[in-house]
Design a protein around this nucleic acid. Sequence first.
RNA 1: GCCCGGGUGGCGAAAUGGUAGACGCGGAGGCCUUAAAAGCCUCUGGCCGUAAGGCCAUGCGGGUUCGAUACCCGCCCCGGGCACCA
Length: 818
Amino acid sequence: MAEPTTPRAPEETPGYDPSSVERKWQDRWADAHANTTDLAEGDKPFYQLMMFPYPSAEGLHIGNLYAFTGNDIHGRFQRQRGHTVFQPIGYDAFGIHSENYALKVGVHPSELIPRNIENFRRQLHRTGLMVDWSKELSTTDRAYYKWTQWIFLQLYHRGLAYKKRAAVNWCPSCKTVLSNEQVVNGECERCGTRVEQRQLEQWFFRITDYAARLLKNLEGLDWSESTRTAQRNWIGASTGARLSFRVTDDGDSADDIVVFTTRPDTVFGATYLVLAPEHPLVDAITRPEQRDSVNAYRARSAKQDLVARKTSREKTGAFTGATAINPATGSPVPIWIADYVLMEYGTGAIMAVPAHDERDFEFATEFKLPIIRVVAGASDGTDTPLDVADATTDGARLVNSGEFDGLTVSDAAPKIVAWLAGRGGAESVTNFRLHDWCISRQRYWGPPIPIIYCDACGTVPVPEKDLPVELPFVENFRPDDSGISPLARHAEWYHVPCPQCGAAARRETDVSDTFLDSAWYFLRYPSADREDVAFDRALTKRWLPVTSYIGGNEHAVLHLLYSRFVTMVLHDAGLVDFEEPFTKFRAHGLIIREGAKMSKSRGNVVNPDQYIDDWGADTVRTYLMFLGPFEEGGDFRDRSISGVRRLLDRVWSSVHDARTMGNGEEPVLRKLHQTIAKVGDDIARLSYNTAIAAVMEYVNVLRAHERVPHRSEVEPLIQLLAPFAPHIAEELWETLGHTRSVFDSGWPVSDAALAAENTIDLAVQVGGKFRGTITVSRDVTKEAALAAALAEPGIARFTTTEPKKVVFVPGRLLNIVM
RNA sequence: GCCCGGGUGGCGAAAUGGUAGACGCGGAGGCCUUAAAAGCCUCUGGCCGUAAGGCCAUGCGGGUUCGAUACCCGCCCCGGGCACCA
């Protein structure tokens, strides 16, 4: 098997020195523009997109490096497979994060951000990413945010951007409005401060108009299941009905109260109504004798912060004194207000069915309201006060529900809605949890919203020819408590002639949400160097939608949902001809350190620069990918990194030692062709850790007992390793005399005939228990295998009687059942 | 409470329903060396046994199957998302 050991002279083999190799190839790639994609050429365009980073002052985080490396491997692999790969990078540099940091260190963001970007660029270069630097962008570039404002105008012109006074989430520390997505457990996701409610005039995008489509399209997307689920939950569709309840009133001013319910079948059990305290009809229906207690309750709940309101499950409320008619029973039911009903969801009003809803039951018990059971399980007909489980059972049937008695829950719902439609009023609807997207930020560091207010003309959009509305330099950009953006203090900028009538007018002083910047950057990349358009039509048609997008799941409901929304709007405007921006998305996992989360306070943050200095970028890249399954993340352990470095050392010496004569040996070549097949399959499905393991196995065979390899055995090895460790691959490729890049050398082809084993070790079981293996030819028949197994004493001793049954799986095993 | 992931040696992990633990780290022993480092070789889940070999073992309890880490039912634990959403 192994040929005689040939001693080698170590002094003749130059050792592997990562830093010089990596510097050499980084310089060469840069000088030759090796990674600049000719976007007009190539017949197999492949757009590999990585989530652009926020350029923090701390520099590249190991999590960024993990994500980028995972993208880069996929991109390089696709290039080797013959695709024209476009892999751009940029910086998500606007936003509160940057601005807060600038305030903290007392440096203006316009000075700070370029500095941070410069540092990121340096770090990205030294990790050896195959990035097309000619299309680099930053959301803070004038040439970029001009088009972010243009996107706003597209939404505005389509009636999808509107302004309203609304209760918004206000962070008293960041002194700005937050979107619902930026509020986590009632706290600001950025600084952790408890969020307050405020009433402000805000710009919103009508993403709710797209809720059904955003939900439906999810089905067809090749995305990580976890991401699709997160979006599905966030959009939160519930099917049900809106039912009208006529308010009984002395006069004729009575309005209908419309409730949303997912259980119209339980309407006969609705014994009272509850409105959210902020519900607009509360004033009109409240009876004079109840006014004081209602107002007191409303004042109390308005003051209560979101956390208290959402964590306390205690049921509180106040009676309005009014009643409404249950359209099913015709009986009057009292109308209450309570903060367990949320104004933001549904119609802000519910019909309470205490017999079959836990919350209603608690409330009814607290305030001694009647409880009528209208659903009974198949097994019982009792009148236990609460049975939530029964109400949702398939076999459950209606009781106390007039002509609908005896119907199952699912049969009754549509029938009752149809019946009520002719009475009080009813319609089937799907209700969404998703809210409109508030994009106004009372801050400085963002693209000004391109709107002008004129006393004569009203709200006037800035004409496209006047874009961008430049963000002026404001020395003191610290926000205050007023809820008005610092831009309002810049008089020269703030006062502007109306574009329509020329009269004195004022600019909108809010800037837009950072998530608007990132909701379209993938469209910009191919056209990043174009001044005249946001995105070139032909380039967009050729390169989009994005072929492969890999990023963190923390953006599952923010960035990824907004990007889909903006793309749909542009599609409807006829500006792009696809409605989903990312054909394939994979969420990668998180890196932890020695079993614990990485954090500054723990002091266990991995500094990429340090590790690259110590081990080389190729080792760090490969190690990160070897830690565990890419889509699950991994545990960064300092001790383990040496194993990957050892691999690169062995590949290095294998190539330098390789003999040029001869064609290689059959067992080695067989392993090689098996490895080629496995590595290709594994990279394609992002199973990087097993791909690297396969390369290691091959090197173990190649170098067993210090064996001297043949050139034909090492050449494809370099190509297999190249996506992971690009610098050493280029260097070794050159060592073998190649003059072109290994990344333009193609991907080796696995020869199935060479990869096939002639003989196999067939597992033999007796009664399902493993009893040994027999070495047989690859295409052994069942009979021959059985005979061979029975001839084996170690196996025959377990086969005491005639076999009852013999299970034979060709190539795998033989199971003799006694 | 609901919805996604997970749970396998000392550790990171691998395994289209078919020999559980590939690969790597760590550990033990050996070769080389004056010595060390590096490199190379062998061993390395647990228990019993001198050995041959046997038994146990993929969070727990059942089930399906010739055969289950994988599929089904019922639980427990960890990570993440949603949550007074009617």
